[in-house]
Design a binder for these strands. Structure first.
Lengths: 232, 232
DNA sequence: CGCAGCCTTGACAAATGTCAACAAACGTGG
DNA sequence: CCACGTTTGTTGACATTTGTCAAGGCTGCG
C-alpha cells in the first residue's frame, strides 16, 4: 500500500479517530489490489474474510435469486462495504463486482473485529457507519414501497442534480441499464418513465440530464428529506 | 419500573454485557408506560429523544409519503426500536404505533449516547444490534426486488411455519391487512395470492395456515437462507 | 339487533414486464 | 481510420401483474 493510499484510508471517518497503533495493526495485514472491470470480488453466501475499501473505481453490490438479479447499491471511493457482515462474522448478503478498473483495499475481518474490541473510538466509528448504512437502506426501502417507477426516477434525478451542484444540466453518471436495476424496474420501463417525465420539466439525452422546469419536476417528484437526503 | 421489568431489560442482548453502574445510570432517567392500542408513539421526522423498548404488546413501524403508507416492520417483546436514530441523534425515519395494549420503556437518547461513550461492552452490543437490523432490512429489500407478490406470500408463510415449530398447521399471528402492507401489496392482491397458493400445497383459513404438501410449497417458494433466515 | 371493520370476489384499469426489432454507441482488431 | 460485432438504449405490441373500485359476506362488539 502506498503512502498516499495509507493516509487516504486513515482519513476515512471509520478510521480517523482511532489510535495510531491500532490503525497500524489493522493495516499490517491489509493489502491493496487492482482489479479489471467486471470482476466478481465476492459472492453472496461466502464467509466474510475481508473488509473491503474502494480506493478508486466503482463497485456494484448486487444480489440474485431464482435466476433473477438486482443491483442494490453502488460503492464509490473512498468508502467501505460489507461492514455488517464483517462485524457479525456472517456470510455476505450481497455479491460485489467492479464496474470499472478499481483499486480495493482488503483488511482482514478478524483484525477488524480484534481492533474493534480494543479501540473505543473505532467501535464508535463503526456504530456511526453502521447506523448510516442502515438508515440508508431503510430510505431505499421506503422509496421502493411508496413510489411507483416514474416517481422513483424523478426523485433519483433530483438527487443526482443536488449531488452535481444543483445546476439545471448535469450528468447522471450511471448506465441506464444499471439505474433501472437499482430502481427496481426493467430498462424498457425506465426508458418509458424518462420519456414520461418530459411533461414534467426534465429531458434526458444519453446520460445528460436537463431540467427545463425545476418547479414542475419538484412538484411531480415531491422529494422528501426522510427518503432523499443523504445526510440524515 | 418494576423489579421484574428492570431485570427483563437487563437481560436484553443490548444491555446484558454492560457495566452495572452504567446500566443503572441508563435506567435512572428511563420510565415505563402503558399505552392503549392504536396510539402513535412517534412520528417520522421527529427528533429522537428516547430509545424505545417494547416490554409487552406489539408495535408497528410504518412510514408514509404523498398520501400512501406502508408497514415496515413489527416489533414484539422484548426488543428495541429506532436504535439507529438514537445513536445518530437524527430524526426518526419511521413512525410507530401500538397494535395492541403495550408497555414501552423509554430511555433518554442522550443517556444512551453518553453511556455508549463510556462503556465498551455496550458499544459492542450496539454494533451487534445495528448490524443485525441492517442485515434484516437488506434481506427484506432483496425479497421485495427479487420476488413477486405470490412468492413473497409463500416464503412468508414458510418463515412463519418455522417460527411456529415447523408443524403443518400453524397460526400466522398477523392481520391480513397488515401482512399485505408488510409484503408491499394490497389486501385484495394478498387475498388472491393466498388463493393461488392452494395449487402449491397451502390452504389458509382466517389466520390458520395448513400446509397440505410441504414439498410442493417449498418447491414453489424456493426459500433462501440469505433472504429468509433470521439468524445470519 | 345493527354497526363497523375486515376479508373476499368480480370487473375493470393502470402499471409493469416480456419479447422482438432496430437504431445508436462502443470497442476491437484489422 | 474503418469495418465489424457486441452491447446498450429505444420503441411497439402484447402479456402479466398489480392496483382500484364497488359490492357483499362475515365477524365481533356495543
Amino acid at each position: 500500500m502506498s503512502d498516499s493510499e495509507f493516509s487516504e484510508v486513515r482519513r476515512l471517518d471509520l478510521f480517523a479517530g482511532m489510535d495510531d497503533a491500532h490503525f497500524r495493526a489493522l493495516m499490517r495485514g491489509a493489502y491493496v489490489q487492482s482489479f479489471p472491470p467486471q470482476i466478481e470480488l465476492i459472492a453472496e453466501g461466502e464467509h466474510s474474510d475481508f473488509l473491503h475499501v474502494v480506493m478508486a473505481g466503482a463497485v456494484d453490490l448486487f444480489t440474485s435469486w431464482n435466476g433473477r438479479d438486482t443491483s442494490m447499491a453502488t460503492v464509490r471511493p473512498i468508502s467501505t462495504f460489507i461492514l455488517a457482515a464483517t462485524v457479525r462474522d456472517a456470510p455476505y448478503l450481497m455479491s460485489a463486482r467492479t464496474m470499472e478498473k478499481s483499486r480495493i483495499a482488503l483488511i482482514p475481518s478478524a483484525d477488524v473485529r480484534a481492533v474493534f474490541d480494543a479501540d473505543g473510538n473505532f467501535a464508535r466509528a463503526i456504530v456511526a457507519e453502521l447506523a448510516t448504512c442502515y438508515r440508508s437502506v431503510v430510505k431505499s426501502q421506503k422509496e421502493l414501497k411508496l413510489r411507483n417507477s416514474r416517481e422513483r426516477v424523478a426523485n433519483f434525478l433530483l438527487r443526482q442534480q443536488r449531488r452535481a451542484g444543483g445546476k439545471p444540466v448535469f450528468d447522471m453518471d450511471l448506465e441506464k441499464r444499471r439505474l433501472a436495476s437499482v430502481l427496481g424496474m426493467t430498462p424498457e420501463n425506465l426508458s418509458r418513465a424518462i420519456k414520461g417525465l418530459r411533461g414534467h420539466g426534465v429531458v434526458v439525452d444519453g446520460t445528460r440530464v436537463t431540467v427545463t422546469d425545476q418547479n414542475a419536476i419538484e412538484c411531480f417528484a415531491k422529494p422528501n428529506p426522510l427518503i432523499d437526503d443523504l445526510a440524515t
